[in-house]
Design a protein around this nucleic acid. Sequence first.
DNA 1: GAGTTTGAAACT
DNA 2: CAGTTTCAAACTC
Length: 790
Amino acid sequence: MDTPVKNQLSPATPFSSKFEDSPVFNFISNLSPIEPVKTRLNDHTFNSVNFSSPPSLFASPQISSFSETRFAIRRHHFSDPTKPDSSRSENENNTSEGVSVAVQPSNLRTEQLGYISPGSSAREVIDEPLTDNLELAIELPSSFKYDSGSPSSSVLPCDAINTDSVSDTTNTQAQLVQSVTVNSKERHILFEREKYLRRINRVEQNNEAARHDWEKKISDTDNLFNFDSPVTGEQPEGPDPRTVDTGSMSFISDVLEDDLNKFERPESTDPVGSCEHYVMGEPCKESKGTGDMKETDQTPAVLSSTLMDKLVVNDSNDMVDDKRRKGIQSSCKPRPQLHRTIRRRCLDFERAGSHEKKSSCECSGSSAVAIQSNSKVASVQNKFVHSMGGSFRSSSKLPGVGLHLNSLATPTEGKVVDNESWASESQRISKRVSIRSCDSLIPRETSHDKFSPKRSLERDLVPYDNEGQAIEEAHQTSTYVDEEFDSSSPQNKRRKSEHVVENLACKRCNCKRSKCLKLYCECFAAGLYCVGSCSCIDCLNNPIHENTVLETRRQIESRNPLAFAPKVIKSTDAVAEFGDETNKTPASARHKRGCNCRKSSCLKKYCECFQGGVGCSVSCRCIGCKNTFGRKDGECLSGAEETEFKESKVETLGEKNATDVETVGEPDLLKTPSEIGRPPYQQPVTLRGKPSPSPQLFNRQNPEKSKVLCGQLKFETRFEVIPEDEALEKMESISQETSGLKSGSPDSKWVSPPHGHGESGSSLNCWRGGRKLILRSIPPFPNFNPPSHH
DNA sequence: GAGTTTGAAACT
DNA sequence: CAGTTTCAAACTC
């Protein structure tokens, strides 16, 4: 799984063969930067690769941060191949962004090739096409054989060719025109040139400054590749790749520096400024020692930025936000190199942002946040990694299992994150990802295992039944944001997913006294690092204080293993195991612990159930519940309240459903607990806002509430929701891990029924049984599929 | 933007 | 476990 292409492609594969068919020559002949984009269609090779790995939701903590970091980097590279998709899609969709489009592909390629590709970036547009072609190198390790084991080397030759002699290119063109057989000669020529470049590069190695700097990076990179990276095979095939790479890198770095010097002078203007939001957290990481990742990431950014400078006119430069510098940034002292790096990143980000969508992202924030995900979350990881490298690039994409990213969502913008939308949609995610996305979530792969944001994320990831659902949900989540778009078109779906990502990325806190190390802090609670956009004070929830964060998380989880678990649990089961009505009770989604509202009537976002877009349940201890997503059973309403509740439902549902609501939905609601027998969960609303396909399985009011939810999902944010079975699994594992803490743990609120009265014997037993039993007592909620509507 | 309200989280 | 305090988001003006 981890070694997708490596094994598939024989190192012995003739270099020539690769390029024979490759569009490289075509590219050279055409010298058109745009052309490569077309060829890019082949880039999907990695898309099919399944990166998912067993999710140890509550696995033991302490995975080495370094390894994760590297892993992240690896992912970054690895995921890159998918970028072409997005870029391509962007091209398809966003013709207006022509220039940026041209540039982006190169970036993507660069990333794919790994870090080396910076050289390509230095080369400007012309190189990109080559890079694209070389992109095949990823798929074709053989190419690296000639590259001396370094992707960069592959890039270099291209540069050399383009740079050194245009005439050669012309000749190549002619040859291509003549016949295919000539290709071998050309390849040979290329190879020779490549060698030549290497020599030059080695000479360049004498440049200590550049060399030293890049060497570190390279060494890190090498380590990364060696470390379990699928890409590994691609690289080291060649002799002493490192040496060569180093030289290449130094050479490239020099070139880049020159270019940057030329173009970055006006840094005070846009590029830099715009970058800042993205860069925010990065410096910190470096200072902190997570430099591996940072530096590695930066490379692509560098390339992209360089290209940006040259080719792209920055259009989104007004994003400078001082707040972003807050916290992490403040502590970081940008070194020249670093600064440059940052700038590059910014540029890269800007590029992504600008051409992806000039989102006027309010997100003042920047970056650095971190969620860490594990293997299972591979796709997410990739995305995150990408974001690290330069923002949430829509480019990042991994096919795959749709996952549900719970904790990432912002309360205000949609709690539910559809990972699948990320995975499948992310491929299509386009430029619309606003800079805002960088605000927050950027998954850092650094490590914290169990307590790490990564884990949180991982935990929160839940597979979706199908992409369509995911998309739909994603759409629902972001509908209010995205209403301008027509949901029908693919492009729009893409945009939807973008919004989802956006939403995910936008957690911000405003903590003043908790130092963002308590669950009060939304960022922390979501397993994220605070970012520059946060308004927190004395924030310790950042990579710099990683240890503190981890320790705190550990403590919190020791008290409450589910503290960082999704707050809303969704049931994916379509059929109830048991025949009793209790089990039939719809519980498509519910708050894991229930709310305790007293004054808000569960009609405001103070109520976590309401905020999460789910109805209240037996778990809730709320008073006067009027949750329009579904009141908890047994909630007695006064006449006025009843009327009010009906009205609210009617309003939500609209006129067409009003009648049904009153006639069908109300009866149970009006019953007292004793009358109803207090079904465990009554949450009638499905996450997807779809009515139950089979009325029998549901409470009478369910369908209506589902409709209500449908209506409200567009406007209300939801908590992360995960399939019930998934949640059950998690909880079971937790329970096992933390056996003995049941009574005393904060979970007790969740575990034990808040209301002792009216519990049925079966449910009571369930409650006594602990989490596992409790969950079982929750009747699985039918899986709402679109067809049900039809 | 400041102040208030609210309920979760944390503490005792 | 219950009561209280702390806290920050949500809300109101």
